[in-house]
Design a protein around this nucleic acid. Structure first.
Lengths: 150, 150
DNA sequence: GTTCAAGTTGACGTTAACGTAAACGTATTT
DNA sequence: AAATACGTTTACGTTAACGTCAACTTGAAC
């Protein structure tokens, strides 16, 4: 097992955040690195937690929410009630994630349209002669389609 | 054309936000409703803008970023340079969105695992007799798989 | 031995995105 | 005319997620 621990600045660099950020996550109880003297030493498990937190952050989750998700992987749920309520929260999360996924796909489709129009427009500019009216019509079509969304 | 305008509280209710939120968006220059006397009157176009802003919010965009995306649909870009830089920003956005999409899919897969284990566990509890060791083993398997992520 | 790089603990500052409350206008319902 | 519902402006408050010092320690390097 190579390199079983990490320093704070190693992780900071790997994930493209500041050390302050990682210490902040500890303040909030998101990670609990060991200490060697007073220096922090992060385990691979700590590293994964940070990674998952940042993943959550990328899709707009609060730290609290990310922790909630991460903790679902831990077996702190013993009895029937806890398991069933866990299933419920799982389903809630899933619903929200599916909505987000749809939002992203819609937005991607919009980007495709914009880009297509840009490239078409650029191509037309390549040909020196063209009617300005035609250009204007092409430019406005996307905006109109957007306006027609219910 | 039925109901071509909306009051602030109509939109607030439709989108599940407060009127304060909508006025705040106006403060920030995101929408520019007409006025009837001093009352705000929102057009369908205003409504769509708000809708798109909230879509952006759901996937973790800042208001500024959402506006940036929305404005890409407007034809304020006339010359070659502007079109080309627009294509670049489009590609940046797309890259980020694709990353987000992957993040969401990963997270969904994780949720599937958690739920499967929960239900398996609940099923086992249905049968009165089972070894506690077995149960414990099952509960920990997800956490271990997570830990093995690079 | 000192200089340096990397770490530490406070503590206060900052920004975005609203919340909340006060004080007021206007229209209609009773 | 009094109350009710809906709207307005102004302004201060709040929370999350860090940024930004300042002042100190600690081990390694020169």
């Amino acid at each position: 097992m190579p390199n079983t621990t990490y320093t704070i600045s190693q992780l900071a660099e790997e994930f493209g955040v500041t050390t302050r950020t990682i210490r902040f996550y500890e303040e909030k109880g998101l990670v609990h690195p060991r200490r060697e003297g007073q220096k922090r030493l992060y385990s691979p498990a700590d590293r994964v937690r940070i990674k998952l937190i940042l993943r959550g952050k990328r899709i707009g989750m609060s730290l609290e929410e990310s922790v909630e998700v991460i903790d679902m992987y831990d077996p702190e749920h013993n009895n029937r009630e806890q398991l069933q309520s866990l299933v419920c929260t799982v389903e809630d999360k899933r619903a929200r994630l599916l909505q987000q996924k749809k939002d992203i796909e819609d937005m991607l489709a919009g980007l495709d349209e914009v880009q297509a129009l840009c490239e078409q427009n650029l191509a037309e500019q390549g040909l020196v002669e063209k009617s300005l009216a035609e250009k204007s019509r092409a430019e406005k079509s996307v905006a109109e389609r957007v306006r027609k969304q219910s």
